[in-house]
């Protein structure tokens, strides 16, 4: 397991952070969700984002997946401008073609799974590797089988998503994201839509994943124990700002900020 380490500055070709946000602004109508947010995530680092609902955590993941467009600021992946860059002193959007190249390194698992109901479990997993990465079908199937084994869903290979429980669907969704061999994995409240008894299996899969890979992970979660177990660093968000940043041990045992203390008290009881 890589040691928690401070993110390296952008622009350095050898040690560029996996993810860097600089002065990111995001508004929804009149509401400003993120107001000049900056932070970086080092390669292989696992960062948990915690905080009350509506504090902008999910928006950060959606910006990184380009499902939302930032109103200001810059996103970098491996030091490379992702959605906007400065040209002639102005902030200009980067064309879709270049974004697509960067986007391939980023994978996401959604709260609502979003499996394709018109395909089998296997079909869901091989669709993108075959059609977006250009992998040979046999190779994609072999990869899918390996991943299904890993998430404990090998026996449901030919099932339809609608015939699976939420927890099973989410494990397939994790395998589907991993089949694209991403460098960065975004986990958006992946257990929030699950019945309590199904949460354990999904978290177990993710724990193993964290222990056995050097994937950079950005984890939005309400499962504090999970955040504590798998992350190198925890960011506490409130109203679109990082109010506290610490290693998990410190964050969960000795939070300093009053907002963090109140939040943890509310969720941990």
């Amino acid at each position: 397991m890589p040691e928690p380490h401070a993110p390296t500055p952008a622009g350095d070709p050898t040690g560029a952070p996996a993810i860097e946000l600089v002065d990111v602004v995001k508004r929804f109508g009149a509401t400003t969700v993120l107001d000049g947010l900056s932070f970086a995530v080092a390669k292989g680092e696992r960062v948990a984002l915690i905080g009350p609902s509506g504090s902008g955590k999910t928006t950060i993941l959606r910006l990184l997946m380009t499902l939302e467009e930032a109103d200001g600021g810059f996103l970098y992946v491996d030091g490379e401008p992702y959605t906007h860059e400065v040209r002639d002193g102005r902030r200009v959007p980067i064309p879709e073609k270049r974004r697509r190249r960067v986007r391939r390194r980023v994978g996401m698992v959604f709260q609502q799974f979003n499996l394709f109901p018109n395909m089998t479990v296997l079909g869901n997993i091989i669709e993108a590797p075959v059609h977006a990465l250009g992998l040979a079908r046999e190779e994609a199937v072999a990869r899918a089988d390996r991943l299904l084994e890993q998430v404990g869903m090998a026996d449901k290979r030919d099932a339809r998503p609608t015939a699976l429980s939420g927890g099973q669907q989410q494990r397939v969704a994790i395998a589907r994201a991993l089949a694209m061999d991403p460098e960065i994995l975004l986990l958006d409240e992946v257990t929030s839509a699950l019945d309590p008894e199904l949460v354990v299996d999904v978290l177990e899969v993710l724990r193993t994943l964290a222990e056995t890979t050097d994937l950079t992970m950005l984890i939005v979660t309400h499962e504090m124990q999970f955040a504590r177990d798998v992350s190198h660093r925890v960011l506490m968000f409130d109203r679109g700002r990082i109010v506290e940043e610490a290693d998990p041990e410190t964050m969960f045992t000795a939070p300093t900020h009053v907002r963090t203390q109140a939040f943890l008290k509310a969720v941990l009881g």
Partner: peptide, 13 residues
């Protein structure tokens, strides 16, 4: 559902 569109984008289709 909009989640279906989003999943296709996240998978670079």
């Amino acid at each position: 559902p909009v989640g279906q569109w989003e999943a296709t984008k996240a998978l670079s289709l």
